[in-house]
């Protein structure tokens, strides 16, 4: 299959005198490099200047709290089911009396871990979440020395009460419309199908 018309058939022929002199070719090469000398540089001075990212950029996750500061996540496990990379695990627990200010509903995630090395940042967990608890943000996952450090627990994922993480940037009009769309039910429908199949199997 021909992809471009830039390919050339190589002919092994005797070089002409001009070619054997090499000097014209060397000068041509030097002309090319000197043109690059004056060209605009491709480098971005990273810490000072940052590369612009898309408005809907999908970066590090956040587990949101509600307005009163209680965790929204109910450990339903839909995100873990939706995750194509199987990066999410969690252990659910029942809310005890007196913990109403910590967890919004009767069930919560005692542990919630995302393996950032497995995660492909597709955003399916965010789409699957019925409680608007997990969001992807424009933050970048920092580098670590150890593999274990990439397994993010609730300490890194849940936003702190005092420093809320703004996720509204990613919620463009298109995204909001998409979420209102009835087709968004496909998550639930798929899940119903999944459980039906599981029941039939057993």
């Amino acid at each position: 299959m021909q992809l471009t018309n830039r390919s050339k058939v190589v002919v092994k022929k005797e070089m002409t005198l001009m070619e054997r002199l090499y000097l014209p070719a060397i000068l041509a090469g030097m002309w090319i490099t000197i043109k690059h000398f004056l060209r605009k540089k491709a480098t971005i001075n990273y810490p000072e200047v940052k590369r612009p990212i898309a408005q809907v950029y999908r970066g590090m996750h956040v587990l949101k709290r509600d307005e009163k500061g209680a965790e929204r996540c109910t450990a339903c496990g839909l995100c873990a089911v939706a995750c194509p990379a199987e990066a999410i695990t969690m252990i659910a627990e029942e809310r005890k009396a007196g913990e109403e200010n910590l967890y919004r509903e009767e069930k919560y995630a005692a542990t919630y871990e995302i393996n950032m090395l497995r995660c492909i940042f597709c955003g399916d967990c965010e789409e699957a979440c019925p409680k608007e608890a997990i969001f992807l943000t424009d933050r970048i996952v920092p580098s670590e020395f150890l593999r274990n450090d990439f397994v993010y627990g609730k300490d890194k994922l849940v936003e702190s009460v005092s420093q809320r993480v703004d996720v509204s940037v990613r919620q463009t009009k298109e995204v909001a419309n998409f979420k209102k769309d009835n087709k968004q039910q496909h998550n639930i429908n798929d899940l119903k199908q999944f459980f039906k199949n599981a029941l039939i199997k057993h």
């Binding site: 000197i34 690059h36 480098t43 001075n45």
Partner: peptide, 13 residues
């Protein structure tokens, strides 16, 4: 620096 400039980079800065 010149190596960098010829390769569209910035060099030590």
């Amino acid at each position: 620096k010149i190596a960098a400039f010829l390769q569209d980079r910035l060099g030590p800065n």
